[in-house]
Design a protein around this nucleic acid. Structure first.
Lengths: 256, 256
DNA sequence: CCGACTTTGTGCACACGTTCACAAGCGGTA
DNA sequence: TACCGCTTGTGAACGTGTGCACAAAGTCGG
């Protein structure tokens, strides 16, 4: 039932395609792509889309790397994970690259999204234009507050959280977004999981416990802030402690 | 532990390799906590704070690791970067650990935050309770829309973006949050930087170009979604692959 | 004071990710 | 066709991060 539709075939490129990659190879390749590279591929894709809109048809690794904020060797290696679709001496065809990255990222298929927790953040997410335009239609909204049920937010009526199982099944939700207060997050997560959702994006500042087969990514604003804070502090220490021999600013003995 | 051993008895170790590092490098290294560890320390801190509130005074690496969703060896190694504050046979004193992590993360100082772009997301951020409670008071809001100027959001009046330099200096903003549309992000970023802000949290789906001394972290919802999408696709491929092993790729299922 | 038991801190080996550097391949030119 | 300059793709070196496994260091009961 896993419809491996994707592009009807690989022959979009010129006739040159010696080893005639089989779908199995593509699959093996996808499995072997490092996590870090996947994140960057998504960035390349966005940059490339922008390029395409501006009418750019060809781009070199150097240019693309610059626009994506990485070094060009890394970029080429990342792209090599998905196949060799460049032309030596010339660069990459923007459209070809776009379609291959989309295929690898599984964007040939639409992924319906459900947002749980329609507070400030939930509202923002429901109205966020970046989702639908990139193949992630928001198909359902849930909240525990009965007063919200039926109220449309961003064009979609809110459902009560108790209906999560049936609604998710009905609308084929494949990604759940948790935007609830921390206390509710684990319970919501459990309900999503039992509703068959296997991918979760968690905005609540909690560590979710899930079965192995469920993929969770978290966005934790406080943690991001604290990482920035750490760098501020480190920088201050460096400035202040430059000359201090053996002792850091905070009293940590650095040298024996 | 901050390297204070001078004991004899290395046992069976091979001949030591000479890294030939200058003392300065050693000191820099000692100070440098791996980026990945810093992110986790922030998580430990949150978990520990919760524990403390519930009256827990002591915790073992195993328990804390479980609550933080990491393995215990990693947790201990992470904690060892900031010093050895545990008691063998017992565990860690929660409050002691909290205070040390806070010190390392630079949370003993308040870091004022400015949010630029008061749209849906900006509203959500301005109202987000998680910031002030964790030592990140929102001290300023900016937008380009003159109609918003003076309007209070989350208790703070919005300033016009043209006043960003003076206001940021006045209120000692150390962290800037960009929640504008992508087209505006780079310009806003430039203004923040020239206003002296050295740490930026970017929600706009753009790769920001900044000087070396500025620290940028990005939160890109579309990228997160696409990473999840990749995993969905990979999983689907794997499921198909189980069948494909020894069978054609046309989706015909042949059960052995 | 001792021995049994618990838990930390860390050396070591391994896996993952990044960067370098260069051969291979392509388009353009004479 | 033969050459030249340019850019890709990748093997190999390197650096960073992870996990295991165990000695060291503590508590506790007797």
């Amino acid at each position: 039932m896993v419809d491996r539709r994707g592009d009807g075939d690989e022959g979009v490129t010129t006739t040159s395609k010696p080893p005639a990659e089989s779908p199995v190879d593509v699959r093996e390749r996808a499995r072997a792509i490092p996590e870090a590279a996947v994140a960057r591929l998504a960035v390349y894709l966005r940059v490339l889309s922008g390029m395409a809109e501006q009418g750019v048809t060809t781009i070199s690794s150097e240019e693309l790397a610059g626009a994506a904020g990485v070094n060009s060797a890394k970029l080429r290696k990342d792209l090599s994970y998905i196949g060799s679709y460049g032309t030596r001496g010339v660069g990459y065809d923007v459209e070809v690259l776009v379609s291959h990255i989309e295929r690898i990222l599984g964007l040939t298929r639409k992924h319906s999204v459900a947002v749980v927790g329609i507070g400030n953040l939930g509202h923002a997410l429901a109205n966020y234009g970046g989702f639908p335009s990139r193949g992630f239609p928001v198909a359902a909204l849930f909240d525990i507050d009965p007063d919200l049920t039926g109220v449309p937010v961003g064009g979609i009526p809110v459902d009560h959280i108790d209906d999560i199982t049936t609604v998710c099944a009905e609308r084929e939700v494949s990604i759940g977004v948790i935007a609830t207060p921390p206390q509710a997050a684990q319970a919501v997560c459990d309900r999503l999981v039992s509703a068959g959702v296997q991918c979760i994006l968690n905005f609540a500042p909690v560590v979710l416990q899930v079965p192995d087969y469920v993929e969770v990514r978290k966005v934790d604003l406080a943690v991001e802030m604290q990482i920035l804070s750490f760098h501020v502090a480190r920088r201050a220490d460096e400035a202040a402690g430059d000359v201090v021999n053996g002792v850091g600013v905070d009293g940590v003995v650095i040298r024996p």
